[in-house]
Design a protein around this nucleic acid. Sequence first.
DNA 1: TTGTATGCGTTATCAT
DNA 2: ATGATAACGCATACAA
Lengths: 339, 339
Amino acid sequence: MASIKDVAELAGVSKATVSRVLNNTGQIKDATRARVNMAMEKLNYRPSPLAKSLATSSSNTVGLIVTSYRGSFFSELMAEVQEMMDSQEKFLLVGRGKRSRQSEQEAILKLMDMCCDGLILHTRNMYDEDLLDLAQKSTPFVILDREVKGLENRSVVYEHAEAGRLAVEHLIANGHRKIACLAGPRSRMTAELRYAGYVQALQDHGIEVDEGLVAEADYDRVGGREAMAEIYQRHPDVTAVYSCSEEMCVGAFDFFREHNISVPDDISIVSFDSVSICTMLTPQVTTVHFPIKEMAVEAAQVLVSLMSGEQDIQPKRFAPELRLRDSVRRLSVSNNNAV
Amino acid sequence: MASIKDVAELAGVSKATVSRVLNNTGQIKDATRARVNMAMEKLNYRPSPLAKSLATSSSNTVGLIVTSYRGSFFSELMAEVQEMMDSQEKFLLVGRGKRSRQSEQEAILKLMDMCCDGLILHTRNMYDEDLLDLAQKSTPFVILDREVKGLENRSVVYEHAEAGRLAVEHLIANGHRKIACLAGPRSRMTAELRYAGYVQALQDHGIEVDEGLVAEADYDRVGGREAMAEIYQRHPDVTAVYSCSEEMCVGAFDFFREHNISVPDDISIVSFDSVSICTMLTPQVTTVHFPIKEMAVEAAQVLVSLMSGEQDIQPKRFAPELRLRDSVRRLSVSNNNAV
DNA sequence: TTGTATGCGTTATCAT
DNA sequence: ATGATAACGCATACAA
């Protein structure tokens, strides 16, 4: 608990001088620098980040805000951001906006109170206007996986709709017409976009959208199983499913296992995927990859640029990519009872 | 950016009074309290946690230290701890000790510098003596998944060896004798214990330990696949495998898939598991469950008790539990070419 | 019930 | 090249 004062006394200099050697600022005689360093050593001195932050209104810290701490998706995101920040000697603070607009805003304020030098926002419930308001404050931030008009240069985005279209297109190209959709919660923009991609692909091929083939779940495993069950009950004749999250895909497999439905013989499936859970299933499932790691790194890099004062940044946009595996069967024309 | 001073002025009181209403301390006339609250409201006042921490040497914060941010194991741990701390209105700070003793110590010091009120340590490389030293300081902490002599009342432990024994015992009970072991890194105590359980079970049944059936990997998926390949090459006649981590189990399944080896027809497998990855595989694999979530909650609760000054706490001990599923086949006696 | 004054551990401005 | 000193925003012991 030695403070800068103790060091100063032991070294026979003033606090100011100690502060200078600490921060390598100003000109210091080698001899005194040595004395100061000795004193620090001897006292086992550790500067207080709290005091420093209070004095400078900065903290060598960046904040990451997410909606949940659960699952590999989050941990990979966090890991990538921290690793990027390691090179900047910055510490990562993470906060969680539960499921409400207000909660997310509070999390942000909390991190700002702690004087984070920058923020990465992977939030889901705040309004665009909230973000616009936030941009008025001085703390730089970048928005992960969301495009806000007016904040394009701070948004790291992914083409969810195009990704969904790609996935469903693949199913259609393989002769499928009765395609189920395991959709995410309507309230989430990205879920809406993924669903839009489904609709788009069907329309492109003149296939009517049948609401009975669509079921909504909370992006999670049990939700996926239940949604799959629901659809199967209504449409035992589905030949393929498009899953909007990897967890729901696992849930679908749970259902298939329980009912002895074989993939891809009895049913084909394509899923979104970000932490490769889909490659653990048997058979490995064909996916559209959502590159959360790369996006996290990009967000971190953009933030670093922002914090160092750069202005005109054009964050990379991430395009979807289809990863062909073994969960899609080509439907022979005879089986094809479509349009 | 309004400070307590601004509030005081606007309310026409002293800073001390504002501080009092802020912390609900002392006696305050309702009228003044109201004025102060109004002023806070009007100024959009937010107390600075930094200044508060500096003044009080506490922060309403607890620290969690882990070795890696990757994977569901970590995120579930973090999520559980945060949820427990929510009820205490405490914020969670998380730090990462990379892979060295020193790095872990630094992470701890860093969190202490931030004035964490308590620490949960899920570290792997620090020495027992380091922990003993740490106990001299005033910051309370609890050790997760490690038993340190002299710190039993701060250790939340799991019986890894017994868990391993249980798993292998199950294989043996089903007639297996040639049992491979996908072991974790020797350097990790828990890996060592899990391996010890393997040895114990074999010895209990008079089965000789064959080093050729054992391969070490880094607890991860690719490591598991490689280890499995290695063993298979040496011993194509293995009938069962004991996997010391769920990720390695996934890796083993990768190998099986590549070589058309069927579970449990061609080979049986039992694995450690903590975030239920093993239930995503086909067939679902029989596991010994490592209850990370429950242990995280227990650790958090013990820490809360510690922080509130309680002394004689006896943390719960966690016993292993076998979860029977579909990855183990009973070997008929005729197939049994063992001792 | 409220105010004054001091300290927490830094940085930073202004002298010297 | 170095020292004195005033912030930073809060808590708290002591007065009143």
